Amino acid sequence: MIDIFKRNLKIKTISIFFAFFMWIYVMAEVDPIILKDYDQIPIKINNINILQENDMVLYPEPDLNAKIILRGRRSLIKQIQKNDLYINTNLKPPKIGVNKLDLDLDVPSNISYTIMPNNISLNIEKSIYTKKEIVIKTINGSNKDLKVDEISYSPKSTFIEGPKSLVENVDKLVCKVDLKNKSKNFNSKAQIIPVDKNGKTVEGVNIKDQYTYVDIGFTKTKKIPLILNLKGELGEGYKLLGYELNSKNINITGKIDEIEAVNEIYTQEIDISNLKENKNINLNINIPQNINSDIKSVNVSFKVAKLISKNLTIPSKRIEYKDNIHNLDISKNNLPDDINVKVTYTEENGKDITEKDIQLFINMQEKDTHPSKFRIKYNVLDEVENVQISPEYVVIGE
């Protein structure tokens, strides 16, 4: 039996070596060793909770990704999916400032790897929690007649949390409320924004309340007429020629619903019964409750004239008969020789009305009775208050 193995020993040895090298060749060609790199492989800090336990936080937020290169047989590398890969690291007892962590990759032992970089530096800050007041800021308030009167909101403050350097950079919490196209009271939900002293948003802090609920109340300004509140009448023999307020309108300001209900405002009441001459008087204005105005009093200037009554006698022969279209005999009239005329006019410097200033006439086109009866009319050169003629009518026989 042993002789069989000893026969052609040389040939058999050569065959064995040839088969071995052929196996090596086939393995190298069919399942070669390859390199494969993977970008953006996540780094997992296994004991990250230790930061929260010690009131610490990573800041600035690190890029917890790295590149890896795997080396191994193609058949093995091919089985590895990128989603299955993650890099491990652990925090040593953390400290404020820079902490250096080594990186490790969990892969089969017959696969080698390279991590780029092979360690990371993390900055750790103290995590602080503090309370800040909320400030409401209105924008786009372009309506000049409306002004914000009342702002109520809830909550008025809230807590912010984050890295010490960021939280200390927060000057205040601002909520912006847009007034564009607003014409009445309204409520709104406004986002809370942390800002620094320059008004720039501070990113990276956590806010307990994301919103505050705001109620905005407006006051409205409106121009309305100012009216003189007169009482009584001037005594006999006097006439009120007119009056003038030094302000004919008034601007009032108040809550919208109250302002809308007011369309005019009166001065305090003034009795003119005893007014007998031109006079300037200061009057208070009756401003409704809860409403403000740009003026509180007004000056009124009264112009008063004394009335003069004068009895005149005008010969009837001075009456002018106009448009005698019916050819009536005007000599057949019932008029007396003299016509009594009482004229009333306002007293003015140098003004005096006489018989010469008044012309009496009859319009004979106005015949409508039999016998014909006509009203005696007048023209006067100056403006008068009243003219009374006696007799009032003339009858002309046909």
Rank of each mutant, 00 (worst) to 15 (best):
K248Q: 10
T253L: 11
I265W: 09
L226H: 02
L226I: 02
Y211F: 04
G232T: 07
G237A: 08
E264G: 09
L228F: 03
V262H: 10
G235R: 12
I250Q: 06
Y211P: 07
T212P: 03
Y213Q: 02
Y238C: 08
N229P: 04
L234N: 13
Y211I: 08
G232W: 04
I256R: 11
S247E: 15
G235I: 08
D257Q: 15
E264Y: 15
T267H: 12
V214G: 02
L245T: 06
N249D: 07
Q210Y: 09
T219Y: 13
L245E: 01
G237M: 07
L240N: 01
E264R: 15
E233G: 12
T221L: 02
N251K: 14
K239L: 10
Y243E: 01
K223V: 03
E244T: 12
T267K: 13
Y238A: 00
T267G: 12
N263G: 13
K255W: 14
I224K: 00
G242M: 08
I252F: 07
E258Y: 12
K255T: 13
N263P: 09
D257F: 13
E258W: 09
G254D: 11
T219G: 11
T221Q: 04
I265L: 09
K223Y: 02
K222A: 01
E258I: 14
T267F: 09
E264P: 11
S247N: 15
N229V: 06
G242W: 09
K222M: 00
F218I: 00
D257C: 14
L241G: 11
G242I: 09
E258S: 12
Y213N: 06
I252V: 14
L226V: 03
L228R: 04
Y213R: 03
Y243I: 01
N263K: 15
K248W: 05
I250N: 05
T212K: 01
G232M: 06
P225S: 07
Y266K: 15
G254W: 11
I256W: 11
G254E: 05
Y266I: 05
T221A: 06
I256G: 09
Y211C: 04
N246I: 12
E260D: 15
Y266D: 11
L245R: 05
K222N: 04
N251Q: 13
G235V: 13
E264T: 11
Y211G: 06
G254T: 11
Y211E: 02
K239T: 07
L240H: 03
Y238Q: 10
L228E: 01
G242H: 06
L234F: 12
L241P: 00
D215N: 00
G217W: 02
T221S: 14
I216Y: 03
L245G: 03
N249T: 14
E236P: 09
G242Y: 10
N246D: 13
G242Q: 10
Y211T: 04
N246T: 10
I224V: 08
